[in-house]
């Protein structure tokens, strides 16, 4: 697969503070790439360097295998942090100005305004827009030049649930067109719902990167409720069991690799027990994220 973005040892220091510490990363065509990390972990600084507004202290990166130039940036649609527009210009005029800078055809403007459902407010001044409308205009501006890559930084920040759902729909629609999307967010749910790959930053260091589908692989946990006196003992004796934990009235069985819920079900059935509740716990990205961060924290503590 074609590499869209390749980062080698990218570093940014603000005085003594190391905001981004020697990051290596690759994004391939068609990926929806989520950048996760707590606030202040260096996501926006990294994106700022990729878009030429922050000068890197060290390291390099290339877009489409070429060293970065301003000409290349015209083919990338990006919104960093919050929407930025001229407040005294209307949405339409703001987009016209951007089309001039990006050398995009003006005929794209109605299309993108339609996509984000702002066509009926296009002649109002930007400063009169609500936050949700500002975010949507930002997405429209990023799509103005039919970009090959779309960079969105916290696109749902500060939106109400309906606004979040709307933006998510828009992102999914764009992704289904085969566009590469880089999405920075601290909303894990969002990343899990729309992303194909993700990376986690912590204090400027890359601590994990991989496909979202890998989340939840490995050992399984199965919730069991069955009304039998020796259920705890029987579960312990099952070949696939690593450990059994009682939570309220249900048992959570941690399974060895290669064992699944159906194996446990069959085992119980053979023992003459019918479970009333049997459920494989899905490992959420949130859990994985917290685990990875905790591990990184731990590693950092040991190192010091």
């Amino acid at each position: 697969m074609e590499t869209v973005l390749s980062i080698q040892g990218l570093t940014k220091n603000f005085g003594k503070l190391c905001a981004v510490n020697s990051i290596n990363l690759e994004v391939k065509r068609g990926q929806v790439f989520g950048m996760l990390g707590p606030n202040g972990s260096g996501k926006t600084t990294t994106l700022g360097m990729l878009m030429g507004v922050v000068n890197p202290t060290a390291g390099s990166f290339s877009w489409f295998g070429q060293p970065p130039t301003h000409q290349l940036r015209k083919k990338i649609g990006a919104v960093l942090e919050h929407p930025i527009f001229y407040p005294y210009l209307s949405g339409q005029k703001n987009l016209e100005l951007m089309a001039m800078i990006k050398e995009a055809p003006v005929s794209n403007i109605p299309k993108v305004l339609e996509l984000v459902e702002l066509a009926d407010r296009k002649n109002d001044k930007y400063k009169t827009y609500s936050l949700g409308m500002k975010q949507r205009l930002a997405i429209a501006s990023a799509l103005l030049n039919d970009p090959i890559v779309l960079i969105l930084d916290e696109p749902t920040n500060g939106l109400d649930p309906m606004g979040i759902a709307e933006i998510r729909e828009i992102i999914k629609r764009i992704a289904s067109d085969g566009k590469t999307i880089i999405l920075a967010s601290h909303l894990l749910d969002e990343v899990q719902k729309v992303c194909s790959h993700f990376a986690i930053l912590r204090k400027g260091t890359l601590v994990h990167s991989g496909p979202v589908d890998d989340v939840g692989k490995g050992e399984e946990k199965v919730e069991v409720i069955a009304f039998h006196d020796d259920i705890a003992l029987l579960l312990e004796r099952f070949d696939g069991t690593i450990s059994v934990k009682k939570e309220d009235q249900q048992f959570v069985v941690k399974m060895k690799e290669g064992f699944h819920s159906q194996d446990l079900n069959r085992y119980l059935f053979e023992k003459g027990i019918v479970a009333t509740h049997l459920l494989t716990q899905k490992k959420s990205l949130e859990k994985q994220f917290l685990e990875i961060l905790a591990e990184a924290e731990h590693a950092a503590l040991i190192k010091n």
């Binding site: 030429g52 507004v53 301003h70 930025i84 527009f85 990006k102």
Partner: peptide
């Protein structure tokens, strides 16, 4: 103050331009 210079550069204007 509006930080539009930042967006101009992101959109593909070089700083010299």
């Amino acid at each position: 103050t509006y930080r539009t210079i930042r967006q101009n550069v992101i959109d593909g204007l070089s700083r010299e331009q």
